[in-house]
Amino acid sequence: MRKIEISTSVTVFSNVSELPVDDKILMGKAVDARKNAYAPYSKFNVGAALLLDNGEIVLGSNQENAAYPSGMCAERVAIWKAGSTFPGVKIKKLAITASSTIAKVDKPVGPCGACRQTLSEFEINQKSPFDVIFMGEVGEVVKTASLLSLLPFSFDSSYL
């Protein structure tokens, strides 16, 4: 038997104004995308912005429906749009932000497990990491240099 330690390194900014200019612009796009969320059930609005290697920015927002679990998260909306519109173009950065119509979201909101799994496949397939930057509506912003650092022991096609 052996024991291993797993750690993740992130950079925490006290607020969005501390971000480097390019990250601040991308987060601004995610905030704009958040305004297009359709979340009448959860009241939790999420926006995502992907910066691609070709300079394009692809947006996504969460979309719910009355068959509540069959809605879609902002991150997966954005990444599948990027994959279908710009196949084979690498992802450089992902910005995510969340707000609620019933409470102030004042801590960083990272991608859910399903989104982490989906995003990890894109990072693995492109053979290079991409930054993930996430925040709530206000407050601290977290930045990590790789999606896979948020998903240790990830499952991928090599197991199939």
Rank of each mutant, 00 (worst) to 15 (best):
E121C: 09
V12L: 08
S84D: 13
E56M: 13
R76V: 06
N36W: 00
F134I: 06
N54H: 11
K104P: 01
S14L: 03
L119H: 03
T97S: 12
S99N: 12
P111M: 10
D53T: 08
V10H: 09
L119M: 13
E18Q: 12
P129F: 11
T101G: 01
L52Y: 05
A66R: 10
L160I: 12
V16N: 14
L94H: 00
P108L: 07
F155I: 14
I4R: 05
K93Y: 02
I133Q: 02
G60L: 02
N54D: 15
E75M: 08
N45Y: 09
A37N: 11
P108F: 02
N125A: 14
N65I: 08
D23V: 01
A95M: 04
F122L: 07
I25N: 11
E140N: 15
N15M: 06
P40F: 00
A48D: 02
V105D: 05
N62E: 04
G60I: 01
R116K: 15
K104T: 12
W80R: 15
M72P: 01
F122V: 15
E64T: 07
G139F: 01
K143C: 07
G88M: 05
P152V: 05
A30C: 06
A48M: 07
S154C: 08
C73G: 15
K127D: 14
K24Q: 15
K3F: 05
G47Y: 08
F153P: 02
D53G: 06
M72G: 09
L51H: 10
S84P: 01
A30R: 08
I124H: 13
G110C: 08
L52V: 05
A37C: 12
V21Q: 15
L59Q: 13
A30F: 10
I133E: 02
Y68G: 01
G28H: 01
I57L: 07
F122H: 03
S100P: 02
E5M: 09
K107F: 10
A103W: 05
A145F: 03
L19C: 02
A49N: 06
T101Q: 10
